[in-house]
Simulated scan of single mutants.
Amino acid sequence: MSNQETNTRRTIITILRTEGPMSAGDLAERIGITEMAIRRHIATLERDDLIFPTTIRQPMGRPAKVYQLTEVADELFPKSYHSLMLDILEDIVRVDGEDKIQAIFDQREERLTSQLNEMLEGKSLEEKVQALAEMQNNKGYLAKWERKDDGSYEIIEYNCPIAQVSKVYPQTCACETNVFRRVLGTEVDRSQCLAEGGSSCVFKIETGEQTEG
């Protein structure tokens, strides 16, 4: 794909974000290219699940087909959720003290453990490891799992969507490890951590006797 094609598609996405749903003809006129060319870009953006067509009624004439952004496209725009989260956690410390932060993460651990135990009930250890890795991957952690030669397992996360928060509040990492340990019912050791400078987060999962989470 040429840089010009990429830039044109970014322009389409930006226009739809700032100006709202628009027809192919209006987009072509707005950008200054032919309608045939704009339709090729639209086809690619639809294929990539970044835009979708919808029909709107008009006071006169036939209904018009316009294009708008999907939720997937929304993720292309900068976000600063971590800044908001850090501000909130800092305010909590100022109002209620450091102990309140730990209480919040303890509650999060209980909630996630309960939810995951219900979702993974009846699965074998390997099935649970696979399911956890898939769930983390869907959340943007670029996670995978593998079985080692000694029979143990590893979940490896190559990205941390909350790394900025984890660097300030390591409770986030401890919470994740504890949830894995309780849901899997076996020992889980975090041997590497992105927030601590590692190249990935690596969770080593033993295959010893399982316990209740």
Rank of each mutant, 00 (worst) to 15 (best):
M1C: 06
S2H: 13
Q4I: 13
E5M: 09
T6F: 12
T8H: 13
R9Q: 11
T11E: 15
T11W: 07
I12V: 07
I13V: 15
G20I: 04
G20M: 01
P21K: 03
R30W: 12
I31G: 02
I31E: 08
A37E: 13
R39T: 13
I42H: 02
I42Q: 03
A43S: 10
L45R: 04
R47D: 10
F52I: 07
T55D: 13
Q58P: 03
P59Y: 00
R62Q: 15
V66S: 05
V66P: 01
V72Q: 11
L76G: 01
F77C: 07
S80D: 14
S83C: 06
L86C: 05
D87N: 14
E90K: 12
E90N: 08
D91V: 04
V93R: 14
R94W: 10
V95N: 05
D96E: 11
E98I: 14
I101V: 09
Q102P: 01
Q102D: 13
A103L: 07
A103F: 05
I104S: 03
E110P: 01
L112F: 12
L116G: 05
E118W: 08
E118T: 13
E121T: 03
K128V: 05
L132K: 00
A133R: 02
A133H: 00
E134S: 11
Q136I: 01
G140N: 05
G140Y: 03
L142Q: 15
A143K: 01
R147H: 00
Y153T: 03
I156V: 12
E157F: 04
N159Y: 11
A163L: 15
S166G: 15
Y169D: 05
Y169W: 10
P170L: 10
T172L: 10
C175H: 05
N178A: 13
V179T: 10
R181G: 02
V183L: 06
L184D: 05
L184W: 02
D189E: 12
D189F: 06
Q192W: 03
C193V: 14
C193T: 15
L194N: 06
A195W: 00
A195P: 11
G198L: 09
S199K: 13
S199L: 07
K204N: 14
I205P: 00
I205A: 00
